[in-house]
Design a protein around this nucleic acid. Structure first.
Lengths: 210, 210
DNA sequence: TGCAAATCACCCATTACGGGTGAACACGCC
DNA sequence: GGCGTGTTCACCCGTAATGGGTGATTTGCA
């Protein structure tokens, strides 16, 4: 299907200077080829399927249909294509929405040109290129709060509650009595100063206790 | 406190050849200094506090106390120190446990020496260095399944259920009737072929529908 | 030896849950 | 124009789960 061995790159970016800059950079790197460049998602969604790109560089802050909104549509149109996000913003919500919608990498626009080319290569090799600060935020999102007021057992039980299991089922799976589970839950509620499952789960997640 | 401007690195690694190799590499790079090298976590936990390291390179597959187990203890001992995981394994469970326990980065042992030094630098600058394949796995963990059988509304309601909220509360927050929520839940259960909250949440999470 | 953690017990009233059946209305698609 | 899908709401049923009070025992680590 591919017409040669070059990595086929498409660019979706509204700023002409930046778009042309990327196109020039990538087009002049051996092994890479620009097969499409668009100023909007609407335009790209109509024509990009014909470009058969391996990688799409996607700006998230576009006028009209934003990059994150277009992501699922691009993925549906080109399921095998890797999509790299390019942005000036480093907002957590935006990052996690983009990654949840199928982005294969996330780069900030201060990324030096040679690193962008390296990222395209990396994503083709099964990697997940991210700018340093983005990577740190992603890693942080996994990190638990080490100064939890909950004991080991309480944390374990709250995790089970957060999966929707009933106290009875939790008791059975942990080989303890239902009364013991109730007792732990009462202690959890006191420590977190809440009066319901939902509030306990929210408080614990907000504070990264679970 | 710091005796000079070098980045202070400690190494915990049982294989002597590898340990010495890293020590030699880092010690001979200007701007870096090896302040400790240990063959086990037990040994490291006793003495490492005196080294006052900026970064610790930590092997996860150690005899005795494993790297992941030692992570919380090291973090408690040296809260300001960045810990970089070094491993041959790329198991998801190990990666997410390590990141959840406070690791600042995750490198595989096939990482070339100059990249290890770069990773130490990157972590000092607020980055989160990861090997390419690890980064892809981390990113994948965020990705939703685009071919969900659930509708938009059903997904929304299942997400609410997964936070532990009651149907009544969900109805209030979405400004719809309790009966409507019940109706959606019945449809969700049918689609996922389950008969309880817990099973629905599990099925949806396993398939990345939520 | 003492304190925290984990275990179990019995009390109470209220609410939530799972399932069946049916129906109205809006929207897009052929 | 009609058909399917998605969203909304209604009324039925019985069982199970929840939140809270009070108190007691045992185990393990410091």
């Amino acid at each position: 299907m591919k017409r040669d061995l070059d990595i086929r790159v498409a660019i979706i970016e509204d700023d002409e200077t930046i778009r042309e800059g990327y196109a020039f950079l990538i087009g002049n790197t051996s092994g890479y080829k620009v097969v499409g460049a668009y100023r909007s998602c609407e335009e790209a969604l109509k024509k990009i399927a014909n470009d058969d790109p391996d990688v799409i560089l996607l700006d998230v802050e576009l006028p009209g249909v934003s990059g994150v909104e277009a992501l699922p549509k691009l993925k549906k149109l080109l399921p095998e294509t890797h999509i790299l996000i390019l942005t000036v913003y480093e907002q957590e919500m935006l990052i996690f929405r983009a990654l949840g919608n199928g982005a294969a990498g996330y780069l900030t626009k201060n990324t030096p040109p040679e690193k962008i080319v390296a990222a395209i290569h990396e994503v083709m090799e099964g990697g997940g290129p991210m700018s340093a600060h983005i990577a740190r935020m992603v890693i942080s999102s996994f990190k638990r709060n080490e100064s939890t007021p909950l004991t080991r057992r309480e944390t374990e039980i709250l995790e089970q509650i957060a999966t929707g299991k009933s106290r009875k089922r939790i008791a059975e799976e942990l080989f303890i009595d239902l009364e013991t589970v109730k007792s732990h839950i009462k202690n959890i509620y006191h420590k977190l100063d809440v009066h319901s499952k939902a509030d306990a789960i929210k408080a614990a997640k907000d504070n990264k206790f679970i």
